[in-house]
Simulated assay, not measured.
Amino acid sequence: MTPHIGQRITAQYAELSTQEQRVAAFILDHFDDLAMYSAADLSRLTGVSKSTVSRLFRRLGFDNYQAVKVHARQLRSLGMPLVTDADAMAGDGERFKRHLQREEENLRRVLAGIEPQVFEEIVRCLDGARQVVTVGFRNSYPLAMHCRQQLIQAREQVRLAPEPNQSLAEELIGLGKEDLVILFGFRRRPRIFEDVVSAFDSIPCRVLLIADATAAGFERQVDWRLECPLDSISAFDSYASAMSLISLLANGLLHHRLAQGRARIDAVSELYGRLDELAP
């Protein structure tokens, strides 16, 4: 990824004029809501001329402020938490309506993108795999952890990797064609992610990738890819569609092996009671 505007400012800050530094400092202080300001706003709020604002943006590699706003929206599409609509969370209950509409649209897009026969194939693999390993980094880690917790109620041999502060290699080595890896790869992935996907070229397990659209380039390297949009009405991504998909997969597995799944759930519940682990 080319350096974003904040990185460009940091790299060139010492070379800027005093007036340009005032604008640059304001941008850094208000980076999260950069797309909300106009060039005139920046001029007024920093006490410099519009020509100074324009000159700064040209020095940073932008033709004009419209290019800066497009740049800010592109950063948001890559997962950087930027406010692009100042009114997104305003208006009493209206914000809840907009939030609901966006969540419903995300879920519709998830379900519309899954072919029933592909879903059934994945469920059969979930049932028949010798072991299932769920893998996630950064924001994908809690999704991998939740997926493991759901699946292990219906079947045994479900592992989470990597464990906190542990490496991944020893978790993947030894996996074979009878095993399944569920890899979560949502945007703002760590650099190691691409290497992990490439490593599956030499590891003969099946791989299900659950991610947003930015992971489309990995599709040819995995057995299945299910796409979950993260769009929200403001700065922070929403993982509701991904959590719903995990529920759908876990329920699909349970109903595919209903007798064994019920027996395991009953056994787990009985042991909960013996260990007195859960509150009434």
Rank of each mutant, 00 (worst) to 15 (best):
Q221P: 04
G217Y: 14
C125L: 12
Q166E: 15
A213G: 00
F119Q: 06
E170F: 11
Q157G: 09
V197W: 06
D223P: 10
E115S: 07
F184G: 02
E170V: 13
Q131V: 11
D127I: 10
G136K: 03
L126K: 04
D127Y: 08
G185F: 02
L226V: 09
R191S: 12
K177G: 01
P190E: 10
N165Y: 15
R155M: 05
V158M: 06
L226T: 06
A161W: 12
A161D: 10
A169E: 11
A154F: 08
D195A: 15
I114D: 02
E194V: 13
A129M: 08
C205T: 01
L160I: 15
D179V: 00
R188W: 00
G128E: 13
W224P: 08
P116K: 08
L208R: 01
L175A: 04
E219Y: 07
E171I: 00
A129F: 01
R138D: 10
D223Y: 11
Q166S: 14
E194I: 09
E163Y: 13
Q157A: 15
L151Y: 04
I203G: 01
Q153M: 06
A161M: 13
V135H: 03
G174R: 08
I192N: 00
H146E: 09
N139L: 07
D195K: 15
F186V: 03
Q221A: 11
R124T: 14
L183G: 01
D212C: 05
L183E: 00
R225H: 14
Q153C: 04
R148F: 02
R220C: 08
E120N: 13
S202Q: 14
F200N: 02
L175N: 00
F218H: 10
E115F: 02
R191Q: 12
V196L: 09
R159M: 13
P116Q: 07
E194N: 11
R159C: 11
D231G: 03
C228S: 05
C125E: 10
F193T: 04
A169W: 09
G217L: 14
L180M: 00
I182R: 03
H146K: 10
F119E: 05
R188Q: 12
S202K: 11
Y141I: 08
E115P: 00
R138Q: 12
